[in-house]
Design a protein around this nucleic acid. Structure first.
Length: 151
DNA sequence: GCCAACGTTGGC
DNA sequence: GCCAACGTTGGC
């Protein structure tokens, strides 16, 4: 079992929105590295730290899990979609995703500031590395455990 | 295959 | 809303 951190702008799709719908196809990722994690490395049952970005207090706000195998992101073929990719062909889709299922909200937000302050305990962590913009990134079992111990 | 221009992400 | 970081695109 692996662990991940997935970012979402709460104005677009918040942890509360996920709680309401239960599960959600993680569509719209248009970055190859993030896609590769979803396409190649994620397995049903993997743990997800749900992270709010582009908001007053960016940070980890909840837990989710991978609830589907990888499959082509339907939005890439929809002309009206913001995520439409004219270069992607149905017989060879470019963008893949998984469905994300709600587990629970954290008792409090574990902020980016706080995670930065604990960088010594966290070790190598893509989230807090300079200039990082990846929206899907791996978390080690030790990091997962440590972050949840802060709750 | 280099690299300038451009677009996007996301913290602040 | 600004802007640094950085991925992508396209001309050459």
């Amino acid at each position: 079992m692996k662990y991940w951190l997935m970012k979402s702008e709460p104005e677009e799709f918040s942890i509360d929105a996920l709680a309401k719908v239960g599960r959600e196809p993680w569509s719209g990722v248009r970055n190859y590295q993030a896609r590769n994690y979803m396409m190649k490395d994620m397995k049903v049952g993997d743990g997800i730290l749900f992270y709010h970005s582009n908001t007053e207090i960016p940070g980890v706000v909840g837990l989710a899990e991978v609830v589907s195998e990888t499959y082509p992101d339907p939005s890439q073929f929809k002309k009206k979609s913001d995520y439409y990719d004219p270069a992607s062909k149905p017989e060879q889709p470019r963008w893949w995703l998984v469905d994300v299922g709600f587990k629970r909200k954290l008792a409090r937000t574990i902020s980016l500031d706080e995670l930065k302050a604990k960088s010594e305990q966290l070790g190598d962590f893509a989230l807090t590395q300079r200039g990082n913009r990846l929206s899907v990134l791996p978390v080690t079992a030790a990091q997962w455990k440590f972050i949840l111990s802060l709750e």
